[in-house]
Design a protein around this nucleic acid. Structure first.
Length: 280
DNA sequence: GCGACAG
DNA sequence: ATCTTGTCGC
């Protein structure tokens, strides 16, 4: 099965499709997803210990030909994907940043017209195509995708990360800043850095037995006193278990709330959007 | 009928 | 997501 979006045209956006049809497609897609570890590497293998300094712009992509880098050439490639929007033109600017052994090895992006409005639960039909377009412009092969949004934490266990992971048949995890559905085992307020608790399926998750662990709340960053930071809501996209997903995200965080791949993709998307705005 | 709802 | 300055605290 060729790892490209053409293998699953039915999951691409179509303005004429009804909500019921899209929900049906999501149940089919979720049935193809694997929520068990099929990675080929461990969380430690992708750990990032030093956050990039974005105060003076994004770090340059490491020059592969100049073997002056101390980075491990055999380490897994983690790709962070995020989007920015040109609301006035109804276009999405999606960015993909490939990182290997803590170093950026490639930046890619794509500008895609949006055909579907944002509807909670159907986000993948709006943003999935742009994300796949940015991924297609990457020359390196990803070993893991880090998406901005939910994966298994979804009404039909078919969030954005699952949608993209299944279409490309690549391991993927979803990192969301707020909870779409499901219930945390414990209250998430004011938790120390590193804290985590399972998110279990409730009645709103129609395709899972209530109580099934579909993801975790993870406190990636916290301040000693005063101001509080909300936790991240991480969940498996494809080919990863819920437990390994938290470990992967924990390994990819380097001092900021968001994991480095997402943080850099976010900055790259904004940079591309800004450059586009200067001209047309 | 009302509330909830990734980006 | 996006519209946006200052501001509180490490």
């Amino acid at each position: 099965m060729p790892p490209n979006s053409l293998a699953h045209p039915e999951f691409l956006p179509d303005p004429d499709r009804s909500r019921e049809e899209m929900e049906s497609l999501q149940r089919e897609l979720a049935a193809e997803a694997t929520f068990a570890d099929e990675l080929g590497f461990a969380p430690d293998d992708v750990a990032i210990d030093e956050a990039a300094d974005l105060s003076e712009g994004l770090p340059p992509a490491a020059d592969e030909t100049a073997a002056a880098s101390s980075a491990d050439p055999d380490a897994p490639v983690v790709v962070g994907i995020d989007q920015a929007f040109r609301s006035e033109r109804d276009e999405a600017v999606s960015a993909a940043v490939a990182i290997r052994d803590g170093t950026v090895v490639e930046y890619a992006h794509a500008v895609t017209p949006l055909s579907i409005p944002y509807v909670p639960g159907l986000l993948a039909f709006r943003e999935g195509e742009p994300m796949l377009a940015a991924l297609a412009n990457l020359s390196v092969t990803p070993d893991l995708l880090v998406c901005d949004g939910s994966g298994r934490i979804h009404y039909r266990q078919a969030g954005l990360a699952t949608h993209v992971g299944v279409i490309r048949d690549l391991p993927s995890v979803g990192v969301a800043k707020s909870l779409l559905c499901g219930e945390p085992d414990e209250p998430v307020e004011k938790r120390p850095e590193g804290w985590r608790t399972p998110i279990r399926a409730a009645d709103s998750v129609t395709t899972a037995e209530p109580g099934t662990v579909i993801g975790h709340a993870y406190q990636s960053r916290q301040y000693p006193n005063s101001r509080r930071v909300n936790p991240l809501y991480v969940s498996p996209g494809h080919r990863v278990s819920a437990g390994t997903t938290v470990d992967l995200v924990a390994a990819l965080c380097a001092g900021y709330k968001l994991p480095e791949p997402t943080r850099l993709a976010d900055a790259h998307a904004d940079r591309v959007k800004r450059r586009l705005g200067e001209n047309d």
